[in-house]
Simulated assay, not measured.
Amino acid sequence: MERMRRLWVNLFGGWFRLSRRFSPALLDEMAAAIAAGERTHLGEIRFAVESRLAPADVLGGLDAPTRARQLFAQLRVWDTEHNSGVLLYVLMAEHRIEVVADRGIAAEVLAEAWSAICARMRGCYAGGEWRAGSLAGIAAAVLLERHFPGDGKANPDELSDHPVLL
């Protein structure tokens, strides 16, 4: 029954509003916020928004956590010098937000901290505040500042700061 509900929302949910909710101006603002945060810590943040999953994937059992881990690998978030990559993943059709942190960060930051960030983003998104929710997730970089502070030297940008729309 759950799989059929998920299929329904991936087929007919509000996924088609992707470009209205994540305008080019908002994407640029998000990229700037990611870049600004990365100047204060050694982490690397990627933000990916997917409108929906393909029907065959839903029927095959693909869920948001699994898809987030796939994208973590596909976008090479794991490929950072300090093992400090973080993927913020939003699946619009299912109203799901997942955070996948590389092993260096996962060893330092508890899952509950990421859950709190997801809850804050979800609350903003539910109220139609797409900008506020997205920037709140990016502002979670304060966790990276605490656990992976910058050393005052130039920190090379290992991953693109621009959000990915799928």
Results as ranks from 00 to 15, higher is better:
residue 111 A to P: 02
residue 144 L to A: 04
residue 129 E to S: 12
residue 91 L to M: 05
residue 2 E to G: 13
residue 60 G to S: 14
residue 129 E to W: 11
residue 151 D to L: 04
residue 13 G to R: 01
residue 104 G to I: 09
residue 42 L to H: 08
residue 77 V to G: 00
residue 131 R to P: 08
residue 153 K to R: 15
residue 7 L to S: 14
residue 116 A to I: 08
residue 154 A to M: 02
residue 54 A to C: 06
residue 46 R to P: 03
residue 145 E to I: 04
residue 109 V to M: 00
residue 80 T to L: 05
residue 3 R to E: 11
residue 27 L to A: 13
residue 81 E to G: 07
residue 29 E to W: 06
residue 5 R to N: 14
residue 144 L to T: 02
residue 77 V to L: 01
residue 1 M to F: 04
residue 166 L to G: 10
residue 147 H to S: 14
residue 128 G to D: 02
residue 128 G to N: 07
residue 20 R to F: 15
residue 76 R to S: 09
residue 103 R to Q: 09
residue 51 S to D: 15
residue 78 W to N: 12
residue 24 P to G: 08
residue 66 T to Q: 12
residue 29 E to N: 05
residue 96 R to Y: 02
residue 9 V to T: 15
residue 134 S to H: 05
residue 42 L to E: 02
residue 74 Q to S: 09
residue 28 D to P: 07
residue 17 R to Q: 10
residue 40 T to S: 07
residue 51 S to H: 10
residue 121 M to I: 13
residue 16 F to I: 10
residue 5 R to V: 15
residue 140 A to E: 03
residue 5 R to A: 15
residue 10 N to C: 08
residue 25 A to Q: 11
residue 44 E to R: 08
residue 75 L to C: 00
residue 27 L to C: 13
residue 36 A to E: 05
residue 57 D to V: 07
residue 53 L to Q: 03
residue 125 Y to T: 08
residue 35 A to F: 04
residue 100 V to M: 09
residue 106 A to V: 06
residue 44 E to F: 08
residue 2 E to D: 13
residue 122 R to D: 14
residue 119 A to T: 15
residue 98 E to M: 03
residue 14 G to A: 08
residue 90 V to P: 06
residue 121 M to D: 12
residue 47 F to R: 03
residue 159 L to N: 10
residue 128 G to E: 01
residue 104 G to C: 03
residue 143 L to T: 01
residue 30 M to D: 09
residue 93 A to G: 15
residue 20 R to A: 14
residue 4 M to V: 15
residue 164 V to C: 12
residue 152 G to D: 00
residue 26 L to D: 10
residue 104 G to S: 05
residue 85 G to F: 06
residue 133 G to Y: 02
residue 65 P to H: 09
residue 139 A to S: 07
residue 16 F to S: 07
residue 13 G to N: 05
residue 87 L to S: 05
residue 156 P to G: 08
residue 105 I to L: 05
residue 103 R to V: 08
residue 44 E to N: 05
residue 116 A to C: 13
residue 55 P to I: 04
residue 89 Y to E: 00
residue 51 S to C: 11
residue 101 A to C: 04
residue 53 L to T: 03
residue 49 V to T: 12
residue 115 S to P: 10
residue 47 F to T: 02
residue 32 A to P: 00
residue 76 R to K: 14
residue 79 D to Y: 03
residue 130 W to Q: 01
residue 149 P to A: 07
residue 42 L to M: 03
residue 15 W to A: 14
residue 64 A to S: 11
residue 89 Y to P: 00
residue 15 W to P: 02
residue 20 R to C: 11
residue 151 D to T: 05
residue 28 D to R: 11
residue 140 A to R: 13
residue 6 R to A: 10
residue 157 D to F: 03
residue 60 G to R: 13
residue 152 G to T: 00
residue 119 A to G: 09
residue 145 E to R: 11
residue 20 R to Y: 13
residue 52 R to P: 15
residue 93 A to R: 01
residue 122 R to C: 12
residue 80 T to M: 02
residue 19 S to H: 14
residue 86 V to N: 10
residue 138 I to V: 09
residue 118 C to F: 10
residue 17 R to G: 15
residue 92 M to I: 13
residue 156 P to R: 04
residue 12 F to M: 11
residue 28 D to E: 09
residue 81 E to A: 10
residue 76 R to V: 04
residue 123 G to T: 06
residue 147 H to L: 12
residue 98 E to F: 01
residue 136 A to T: 07
residue 11 L to I: 12
residue 67 R to Y: 04
residue 68 A to I: 03
residue 70 Q to C: 10
residue 117 I to D: 11
residue 20 R to H: 13
